[in-house]
């Protein structure tokens, strides 16, 4: 019967360790093994570089992005100015570097807030059911029934000054519902599994079952979705800027730069003005997608 024949000796006892330690172990293992996965390694590198760029842009450039000279307008790359100059004659490299903060902030805040709201609302709705579920699910249905792009435009149009907070608010308003539903679905699925019933029969309390058994087994898709939605948030921010309802000048953002480059056909005269911010946005979004995909594989308890 016993296929293994280990000795019982020299075994330290720690059977009450938290289940989450295992998940953390898997993420650590994933990060450590990234040198064997070139795509993941590149994605992590991009995310780290862009994050540092967002936090301390001064590390990458000592040129003030607002120090402009109209006579340099749309000049191409030159020594000391690798990305050239924009329409206003400002150094484009420092502009792009400073734009990282807005994009990252929008992406991370949207993903983080959506994660928290979906986690709380989704587990309440799925686990407790009844009236709570009805209220939360119908609210989500209403949100999901709204045409997101048009509604976002209408809402954003109402704000006189639009900052990161405004964009994040509108994006979270329309993304929480789908994510919540997803988590609610997995919670419902896990809730009726036998090991949850087994815990109930053993006399484990409801909240403990939720936190120990249901959520750890239901949260993986949520983590993956949230990672993916960082990129989606960044792209949406840029999209709003292009449509003219994004963050207002004189803020720096890749979206604003793409919008400026695309207006009046500027990019046909100076295509690099379009290329650099779009490339940064695409690479960062892609990096989060790659990270999300790898997380999904790594967090499966049967992969080892």
């Amino acid at each position: 019967m016993l296929e293994e024949s280990e000795t019982a000796a020299a075994v330290e006892v720690r059977p009450t360790a938290e289940g989450t330690r295992r998940r953390r172990g898997r993420v650590e293992a994933l990060l450590l093994s990234s040198w064997r996965r070139p795509f993941l390694a590149m994605a992590l590198l991009i995310i780290v570089v862009v994050s540092v760029m967002a936090i301390v842009p001064q590390l990458f450039t000592d040129i003030d992005p607002r120090d402009c000279d109209l006579s340099l307008s749309r000049l191409g790359p030159s020594p000391g100015h690798p990305f050239g100059f924009d329409m206003q004659g400002c150094d484009y490299f420092s502009n792009v570097v400073y734009g990282a903060r807005t994009s990252m902030l929008v992406g991370v805040l949207v993903a983080g807030l959506t994660f928290v709201i979906a986690l709380v609302a989704g587990s309440l709705a799925g686990y407790y059911g009844g009236l709570i579920d009805t209220v939360i699910s119908r609210a989500a249905d209403i949100v999901l029934g709204v045409p997101v792009m048009i509604a976002s435009l209408v809402i954003l149009y109402q704000f006189k000054s639009r900052g990161v907070g405004t964009i994040v608010f509108v994006l979270v308003l329309f993304t929480w519902a789908g994510t919540m539903r997803y988590l609610r679905g997995t919670v419902l699925q896990v809730k009726q599994l036998e090991y949850v019933q087994a815990a109930r029969i053993l006399g484990v309390g409801r909240l403990r079952i939720l936190s120990r058994h249901v959520l750890p087994n239901a949260i993986t898709p949520l983590i993956v979705m949230s990672t993916l939605s960082v990129g989606a948030g960044m792209t949406a921010e840029a999209g709003f800027s292009i449509l003219g309802v994004g963050i207002k000048l004189p803020a720096f953002s890749w979206g604003l730069q793409i919008a400026a480059a695309s207006s009046d056909g500027n990019w046909q005269i100076a295509p690099l003005l379009m290329l650099f911010p779009a490339l940064m946005l695409a690479l960062t979004t892609l990096a989060f997608v790659v990270l999300g995909e790898n997380l999904r594989d790594a967090l499966d308890p049967r992969s080892s």
Binding site: G19, R23, H213, P216, N217
Partner: peptide, 10 residues
């Protein structure tokens, strides 16, 4: 009937 994320001891 056993939680796949928890050790048998847990």
């Amino acid at each position: 009937s056993l939680d796949p994320r928890r050790t048998v001891g847990q």
